[in-house]
């Protein structure tokens, strides 16, 4: 274990791969490793991407990776794909679109499946981000599956949130998903070569307002053709500088820490009362007591919290 973390800090990709697996598999060793890794993180600029499936997020990231590489940055990518709820398996194909940056030593790409992450996919994703951060990736892209609630949830933990949309073809009124206008720091209209981009851009412009002194820019791209990528990279860099200078970067880190502490606490509690744990039997007894109307759920919950072993090493 010590070897893996030490190797990671030397920039070893094999160690990074193995550590992310430990996190994904929820192995106890991961907690120790992450503790040791943590002081070495906080340097990378983390950019989260959200947008409906098929909008071209992978292709955009592929182009951005090349652009940032040309600007001398090292890059990490964490790409999340859905796990089949029926079989528990997944086909992870985002690498295909990023294949041409595959053997560049300054690039690390990791595909993650959503799995049934008990502790929350967002936690695991950002633990993986930290591994890449500690390895020395200067920019880390997080690509989510789509634009559902949980994906938005993940993307918004990044420093910079990129919302990707594409113009529709034909005579349709394009409406934005509720909430999508509030979360983005940068809006990308991709596939401008296909549909009527002007309408979508105008629509966005009309609805987007400045927040905390930053008006979200709208960038037109055609990722497959490489159009607009330089501009998007500039915007991302500008936002990083803005966050730094305004102090908002720290604000976002605190907000994320809050979420992560809460979620971790929740996880620990769930684990603490689960089957086979010291308080497992108590949990069972309380459940029966509630069912038999001997006590109520609220009181039972208090009892559980009080009994939670305090000195046990967190896992």
């Amino acid at each position: 274990m010590r070897d893996l973390v030490a190797a990671l800090l030397q920039g070893d990709k094999r160690a990074a791969g193995k550590l992310i697996s430990l996190i994904e598999d929820d192995e106890p060793e991961a907690v120790d490793a992450l503790q040791r890794i943590y002081p070495h993180t906080g340097r990378a600029h983390v950019v989260g991407f959200t947008g409906p499936p098929g909008v071209g997020k992978s292709s955009l990231i592929n182009r951005l990776v090349r652009t940032f590489r040309a600007r001398g940055k090292t890059i990490g990518v964490v790409a999340v794909d859905p796990t089949s709820p029926y079989t528990g398996g997944a086909v992870l194909g985002d690498r295909i679109r990023m294949a041409d940056t595959g053997i560049d030593p300054g690039v690390f790409i990791r595909s993650m499946a959503t799995r049934g992450h008990a502790g929350g996919l967002a936690l695991a994703t950002f633990d993986a981000v930290r591994v890449l951060d500690a390895m020395g990736s200067q920019v880390v892209f997080v690509e989510t599956v789509g634009a559902g609630q949980s994906e938005v949830e993940i993307a918004t933990r990044a420093h910079t949130v990129v919302v990707v949309e594409m113009p529709l073809t034909g005579d349709v009124v394009q409406t934005m998903k509720a909430g999508i206008l509030e979360i983005g720091d940068v809006y990308v209209v991709n596939k401008v070569d296909l549909g009527n981009a002007d309408v979508l851009v105008a629509n966005l412009k009309f609805q987007l307002a400045a927040r905390e002194g930053w008006t979200p820019p709208i960038v037109r791209t055609a990722a497959l053709e490489g159009q607009g990528i330089e501009e998007l990279a500039d915007v991302l860099e500008r936002h990083a500088i803005f966050l730094e200078r305004s102090g908002f970067r720290h604000g976002r880190e605190v907000a994320r820490a809050r979420q992560e502490i809460l979620e971790t606490a929740q996880r620990l509690l769930v684990r603490g009362v689960s089957e086979g744990s010291p308080t497992g039997p108590l949990f069972d007894r309380l459940a029966n007591a509630v069912a038999d109307r001997e006590t109520d759920p609220h009181a039972a919950a208090r009892k559980l919290l009080e009994s939670h072993p305090k000195k046990k090493r967190p896992r």
């Binding site: 796990t83 089949s84 079989t87 997944a90 194909g93 295909i96 595959g102």
Partner: peptide, 11 residues
């Protein structure tokens, strides 16, 4: 995949 594995397909 249908057997529950995670498959990375590189094209």
């Amino acid at each position: 995949r249908d057997a529950g594995m995670e498959v990375i397909y590189t094209g």
